[in-house]
């Protein structure tokens, strides 16, 4: 009986020693996360990181580009309908992209609906709502103003839009606070030229680039250029952004010009116009005979006609454009018109 009790006593002592050892090694030690438990946090981090990447690398640039394109279309429509120009095109387009207004006036109230549901904040909010709904990631943001520019990098056929977006992404387990500079290039082809709209009664051709490259013009190609109202680069012409402010000066990097097609102006063409039938000369009242240098204007044989209703009725050009478009073999008589 005595031996049995001793055995129980020693067993109890052994268990006590093991408990002391286990407790001693466990209590006060830092917890180590098991590899099998890591995917939960890892998945959350990976998905949020992927969201942040796609937001700053793809979604925001897409939003700025499409909103910017629509803002240019909206501004062009506004200028066509009102006949007014923009004193600061970059600031005006920024206002349109961010608020859908121009000078504080809601464009949709003027029947211009390009920006409905397409302003930058509206589009970002759509993304934020979907992220919140599908991934439980909260996105808060602030947008800076948009700056538009053209230079040698953009060339004449694109406009650069730059804006800064500050994002706070909250995924509960982790958060991101980032400032994302968004810079995109907006193609201009397909956008109606507001310069025409301001000077005509509802005539506003879309900007389309001429297919002639390296200045290899022929009379046939020039006629097509004239008929289709396509555009060509020229260092003496105004850029697209300058056209928004009705400027007719020269843009070395980005000047574009088109020919005035008399057939499109049957009603309001001033047949006694004293300027080259090149848009910025015609509407800017430049390039005329009274300007310095050889600005004499000429009829073109085989092209210019003075029969009312004829296709190229009254079409004239100065020496500079005759040379540029390879029409020197077709120079007709000099024109002296009273403006």
């Amino acid at each position: 009986m005595m031996r049995s009790r001793r055995a129980m006593f020693f067993t109890f002592i052994a268990i006590l020693i093991i408990l002391v050892l286990v407790t001693g090694f466990t209590v006060g030690k830092r917890q180590v996360v098991l590899t099998s438990q890591m995917p939960v946090v890892r998945t959350r981090a990976a998905q949020t990181n992927s969201y942040v990447q796609s937001l700053s690398g793809s979604l925001l640039p897409r939003i700025v580009q499409t909103s910017g394109t629509r803002a240019l279309m909206a501004v062009s429509a506004y200028m066509n309908s009102t006949g007014s120009s923009l004193s600061d095109p970059s600031a005006s387009i920024s206002e349109v992209m961010l608020n859908g207004t121009l000078g504080g006036v809601d464009l949709s109230s003027l029947g211009i609906t390009y920006m409905q549901g397409n302003t930058v904040p509206e589009r970002i909010q759509e993304v934020a709502d979907l992220a919140s709904q599908s991934q439980r990631i909260n996105t808060t943001y602030t947008t800076g103003s948009v700056t538009l520019s053209q230079d040698n990098t953009t060339g004449p056929w694109r406009v650069r839009a730059a804006m800064n977006v500050t994002l706070f992404i909250d995924a509960r387990l982790m958060s991101w606070n980032i400032s994302a500079p968004i810079i995109v290039l907006i193609p201009l082809e397909g956008i109606e030229d507001p310069y025409y709209g301001m000077h005509t009664n509802d005539y506003h051709p879309a900007i389309r680039r001429s297919e002639v490259v390296s200045g290899n013009w022929t009379l046939t190609l020039f006629e097509a250029h004239l008929r289709n109202v396509t555009y060509d680069y020229d260092i003496n012409a105004p850029s697209f952004l300058m056209r928004l402010s009705n400027a007719s000066g020269a843009s070395f990097c980005c000047g574009i010009e088109s020919m005035i097609n008399p057939a499109d102006y049957a009603m309001d063409l001033p047949s006694t116009a004293n300027w080259s039938y090149v848009d910025h000369c015609f509407y800017g009242h430049q390039c005329n005979a009274s300007s310095p240098g050889d600005k004499s204007i000429w009829n073109l044989s085989g092209l210019t006609s003075y029969s009312p209703g004829a296709e190229f009725y009254g079409f004239i050009l100065t020496q500079y454009f005759i040379g540029k478009y390879g029409l020197t073999d077709y120079v007709g008589s000099q024109v002296v018109r009273e403006p």
Partner: peptide, 22 residues
């Protein structure tokens, strides 16, 4: 069963945005 999610969007003629899609 695990997943990876991403939001995408695109544009038609540079002016009409579609999406975002999950």
């Amino acid at each position: 069963l695990v997943n990876a999610k991403r939001l995408v969007s695109g544009a038609v003629n540079a002016s009409t945005m579609w999406g975002p899609l999950l």
